[in-house]
């Protein structure tokens, strides 16, 4: 076998495998949050009244705003992939940047929301929170953990998108080779899906 043939094997790529691997990884992410959803369901079941009362303290306006921000960022991400498929590099690039900025907006929103909670004294270990009934302590415990972990995933997704922006500029992602962008999109949409469930469970159960 000649060296050329050998080399041609190296450039062989399998886009389906890349996406498949990403999906498997997403299942892991799903079950990671799944564990938290299990906890949520048990504690909500055993402390229904406390959960209702605690959820009333949530800022529904900020929650809804964040939902819309994330849904729209999913839209721009999907559009960025289509634009790349059609070979419109500049359009795709701008859509990716917009997606990144939406992610940032989400986090800024979250920051204000959390600082408001902290000002009210509803932070873990605070005397105000510890004095509350145990169901409410659990509600806030889950709220900070689940939303916090989701925030970490938003940051991770933004990091991935930042890399995609770089790859697009450098011409690594092209009209014919955009599977990296697709995989990044899959991750971003998963972050969106998790928020789709977090939103009603923490903000809308009053």
């Amino acid at each position: 076998m000649s060296a050329e043939n050998q080399a041609s094997v190296h450039v062989h790529r399998d886009d389906v495998a890349t996406k498949m691997g990403m999906w498997f990884f997403l299942f892991s992410e799903l079950l990671l949050f799944g564990g938290l959803f299990l906890m949520y369901s048990v504690y909500r079941y055993t402390h229904q009244h406390d959960f209702h009362i605690a959820a009333e303290g949530m800022n529904i306006f900020l929650g809804t705003a964040n939902t819309i921000i994330l849904l729209t960022s999913s839209l721009t991400m999907a559009l960025a992939i289509t634009a790349m498929q059609k070979g419109k590099k500049i359009l795709s690039l701008s859509l990716q940047i917009i997606t990144f900025l939406f992610g940032l907006a989400f986090l800024v929103n979250k920051f204000f929301e959390w600082s408001a909670e902290f000002r009210e004294g509803n932070y873990p270990g605070s005397p105000i929170l510890t004095a509350k009934p145990s169901g409410q302590i659990l509600y806030y415990g889950l709220y900070y953990t689940m939303v916090g972990l989701h925030g970490v995933h938003v940051i991770a997704g933004m990091t991935v998108i930042a890399f995609m922006i770089r790859f697009t500029i450098k011409g690594i992602i092209t009209k014919d080779n955009y599977v990296k962008l697709e995989a990044a999109g899959l991750y971003w949409h998963l972050v969106d899906i998790i928020w789709i469930f977090l939103f009603p469970l923490f903000y809308l159960i009053t």
Partner: peptide
């Protein structure tokens, strides 16, 4: 909503 995201966006 998740179904829509999964089938269309993803």
């Amino acid at each position: 909503k998740s179904y829509l995201v999964l089938t269309e966006f993803m």
